[in-house]
C-alpha cells in the first residue's frame, strides 16, 4: 500500500473501552516496529507518542468496545478518517469481557461501584465496533498476538492477503504436538470452536482453551456445550466457559442462551 500522493502510509491507533493490552502488543513488537516506522508513518498513537497528526489515515487500528454515547459518536468520526479500519482484540471485535454487563442491569452495577453514580454516563451494553461502523479486518485475541499484527501490516503494505487463519485452535494444537487436554484429561477446552492464531498456548500449558480468539469460521458451539454437559460438567461451568472475553459474539452466545430460557 502507498497513499495517493506517494508519501508513506499513515497509521493511527485509537482506544475505546479496553485494558490497553492490545496496544501493548503493538509496543512489544519494538524491533519489528522500527522496520514498520521506516515503512509507515505512525501519525497518531497517544499510548506511544505525543505527536498527534490530523487525519485522514491509511490504516486505523481500533482497540476497545463502545460503552458510552460519546464513544458511539467518536467511532463515526474515526471511520470517516480511516481508509482501512482494523479492530484489534476481543473488546473491539466482540465487546470484550465488559460485555458481561449485557446480561445484567448496568444501572445496578453503577450504583454499587461508584460513590457518585450520577457522575457516570454509560450505555447499558458494551458492543463491538462492527455494530457501529463497517470494519475492514478483525484481529482477534485477548490480547492480540504481535506476529499476527506484523503479518497484517506487512500484508497490507505489500498489497497481499494476510495469512490469518480462521480455522480452529485444534489445528495449531496438533501441529504443535500438544497432548489434547480435552481427550486426555476431560478438560473443558474451547479450542474446537475458537479461531486459531495464538499458537494454541493454553493446551500447551495443560489448560483448556478459554476461547480468547473468539469463534472460528463455523463453530458448532451448541454441540460442544451439549457435549460438556453430557460428559458431566455443570451447567454453570459451561455458561462461564462461553462467557468470557468473547461472551457477546453471537456464535458463543447461542451455545448457552437457548438452554437458559
Amino acid at each position: 500500500m502507498s497513499s495517493d500522493n506517494g508519501r508513506k502510509p499513515r497509521i493511527a491507533v485509537f482506544k475505546f473501552a479496553s485494558c490497553d493490552g492490545c496496544q501493548l502488543s503493538l509496543l512489544d513488537a519494538e524491533d519489528e516496529l522500527l522496520a514498520v516506522a521506516g515503512a509507515v508513518e505512525i501519525a497518531y498513537f497517544p499510548e506511544a507518542s505525543r505527536r498527534m497528526l490530523k487525519g485522514p489515515y491509511d490504516i486505523g487500528l481500533v482497540e476497545g468496545s463502545i460503552t458510552t454515547h460519546h464513544d458511539a459518536q467518536r467511532i463515526q468520526q474515526i471511520r470517516r478518517q480511516c481508509r482501512t479500519l482494523v479492530t484489534i482484540g476481543a473488546c473491539a471485535t466482540a465487546g470484550g469481557i465488559q460485555a458481561l454487563r449485557n446480561w445484567r442491569d448496568t444501572g445496578e452495577f453503577v450504583r454499587y461501584v461508584y460513590a457518585r453514580p450520577d457522575y457516570i454516563q454509560t450505555l447499558n451494553h458494551s458492543t463491538p465496533i462492527a455494530e457501529h461502523v463497517p470494519v475492514d479486518f478483525e484481529l482477534r485475541g485477548c490480547p492480540i498476538n504481535k506476529y499476527q499484527l506484523i503479518e497484517l501490516l506487512s500484508a497490507t503494505l505489500a498489497g497481499r492477503k494476510p495469512n490469518i487463519p480462521t480455522y480452529s485452535v485444534c489445528i495449531e494444537c496438533k501441529r504443535r504436538g500438544t497432548v489434547c487436554v480435552a481427550v486426555a484429561q476431560g478438560a473443558m477446552c474451547l479450542g474446537p470452536v475458537t479461531q486459531a492464531g495464538c499458537g494454541a498456548i493454553c493446551p500447551a500449558y495443560g489448560r483448556g482453551c478459554y476461547g480468547c480468539y473468539g469463534p472460528m469460521e463455523n463453530p458448532n458451539s451448541k454441540r460442544l456445550a451439549a457435549h460438556f454437559l453430557e460428559t458431566g460438567k455443570e451447567r454453570e461451568q459451561v455458561v462461564r466457559a462461553f462467557r468470557t472475553y468473547n461472551a457477546w459474539a453471537w456464535q458463543f452466545r447461542e451455545a448457552t442462551e437457548e438452554r437458559e430460557g
Binding site: S168, I171, K174, G191, V193, E217
Partner: peptide, 13 residues
C-alpha cells in the same frame, strides 16, 4: 454434521 465440530483433529492425527 450436527455432531461434528469441524475442528479437524481427525485429519491431523
Amino acid at each position: 454434521a450436527r455432531r461434528c465440530l469441524c475442528c479437524a483433529n481427525c485429519t491431523m492425527v
